[in-house]
Amino acid sequence: MAVLRTVTLVGAVLLSGLSAGLFYSYACSVMPGLAKVDDRAFVDTMQRINTAILNGWFMLSFLGALVLIAAAGLLHWRGGDRTVLLWIAAAVLYLVMLVVTGTVNVPLNDELAAAGAPDTLTDPAAVRAAFESTWVRWNLVRAVTSTAAFGCLVGALTRAS
C-alpha cells in the first residue's frame, strides 16, 4: 500500500507540474511573443496551437492529474497521513483551473476556430480583439491556480517521504 501511495502522489505531482508549466510557458513566452505579430499571423498561429494541443497525451496528463490528486489524497488519508488539507487544496485549485479552462479559454478557442481560416478573414483585428486580452488574462489565472496546486502537492510529497 505504501508503494501505491507514493506512486500516485509522484504521478499527481508530475502531471500537475506539466500543466502548471504549460500555462506558465504561455504566460511568459508564447502570448508575449504572439503579441508582437500581425493580426492574421496571430489568429493563424493560435488556431494551429489550439488544434495541435487536442491530442491523447495532453488530455491524459491534463485530466489525469485531478484523478491522481484525488487518489493520492484518499490513499494517504486512509494510510493515516494527517496532511489531507494539502490534497484538498491541490484538488480545489486544480479544479478551479479546469473550470476556467472549460468555461473561458475553450469557448474562446472555439470562437477563434469558428471565425474561419485566417486568409479569408475580412477583419482579423476584430477576431483577435475578441480573443486575446480575455484569453491571456484567464490563462494567468490558470497558471497561478495550477502552480499553487503543484506547490501543495510538492508539500505533500515532502511530508510523505
Rank of each mutant, 00 (worst) to 15 (best):
T122L: 08
V37W: 04
T103P: 01
L14I: 13
P118K: 02
Y26N: 08
V100W: 05
P107M: 11
A65I: 05
S16H: 08
L157A: 15
L93D: 05
M31L: 12
L15E: 06
G151Q: 12
D81K: 12
L34D: 01
V67A: 13
M59Y: 07
D81F: 15
A2L: 08
A72L: 08
A72S: 15
L18W: 06
A148H: 12
G80I: 14
G56N: 08
V96G: 03
F131I: 12
G21D: 13
W57T: 04
T134L: 11
G151P: 08
G73A: 05
F131R: 11
V37E: 06
V100D: 02
M46D: 07
T158E: 01
A149H: 15
F62M: 01
Q47D: 02
V100F: 04
I53E: 05
A52N: 09
G155Q: 10
S25V: 04
T134I: 09
L93C: 11
L112F: 04
A91V: 06
C152I: 12
L66D: 05
A71W: 14
G21Q: 13
L95V: 09
G17N: 09
A117T: 06
R5Q: 10
L54N: 10
L112Y: 03
A114D: 14
E132D: 03
F23G: 04
M97L: 03
G33D: 07
A148I: 04
K36I: 00
R159E: 02
T51D: 07
L15M: 15
A72W: 13
V141W: 14
M97A: 10
A27V: 10
G11S: 07
G56W: 14
A12N: 03
R48A: 15
V3I: 07
A115T: 12
V96C: 08
A156M: 03
T101V: 10
V104S: 03
A143Y: 13
N105S: 03
M59R: 07
V144P: 02
L95N: 01
F42D: 02
A27H: 12
R78N: 11
L75G: 02
T83V: 06
D38K: 15
Y94A: 00
L85P: 06
W135S: 00
F23K: 05
V104L: 07
R48C: 05
G21N: 11
L4H: 02
M46N: 15
A130Q: 12
V96P: 03
P124D: 08
Y24L: 14
P32F: 06
G73S: 08
L34C: 01
V43N: 11
S29L: 10
N55T: 01
V100Q: 02
L9T: 00
F23W: 14
V144L: 13
S29M: 11
G33A: 09
A113K: 04
V104I: 11
L60F: 14
G80S: 09
V10I: 15
A2R: 10
S61L: 10
L121M: 06
Y94R: 01
A52S: 07
D81C: 12
M1F: 12
A90V: 05
A113E: 05
G73C: 09
L140H: 14
T83Y: 15
M97I: 00
A20S: 10
A117S: 11
L54Y: 09
V136M: 09
L93S: 08
I53D: 04
T122I: 05
G80C: 11
T158P: 01
L157S: 14
R78V: 13
